[in-house]
């Protein structure tokens, strides 16, 4: 399994044709306390850059974007009842959606872990 990162601070873990999408620890630290998560319907076809989910902190609403094209095959319903998990385990249990990857070629536009870390250092 390989994990990629977007400039918008999503992580995307690829296992075969399936990609699990969440937000990075840096992203959750910028958001602050998450109080609400809205997930898409299963079966929804997302284009790269579409809104895949919404996270609301005490302060503001933010969108989680689809880092690649794909169909939503699963969502993490546990986040709806326990939105604070996004702060506690952002790069583990608090994933948002699983996508069926439409075009693996799009993964080449994303960063690996070392590049993402270097990118965050510049912010």
């Amino acid at each position: 399994m390989t994990t990629y990162y977007s400039k918008d601070h999503e992580w995307i873990a690829v296992d075969g044709d399936t990609a699990t999408v969440g937000i990075t620890d840096y992203a959750q630290s910028q958001l602050g306390d998450v109080v609400y998560v809205e997930l898409p319907d299963t079966g929804k076809a997302l284009k790269k850059g579409d809104e895949a989910a919404v996270v609301e902190s005490v302060k503001a609403a933010s969108e989680v974007y689809a880092p690649i094209d794909g169909e939503v095959v699963a969502t993490n319903a546990a986040l709806v009842d326990s939105p604070a998990n996004v702060n506690e385990d952002p790069e583990g249990g608090a994933w948002f959606v699983k996508l069926k990857i439409a075009d693996k070629g799009q993964l080449a536009d994303l960063m690996d872990e070392a590049s993402y870390k270097a990118y965050v250092e510049t912010l």
Binding site: D8, H9, A60, S62, E63
Partner: peptide
């Protein structure tokens, strides 16, 4: 991720 709360 994108936020509607921008500080430019």
């Amino acid at each position: 991720m994108g936020t509607t709360d921008s500080h430019a």
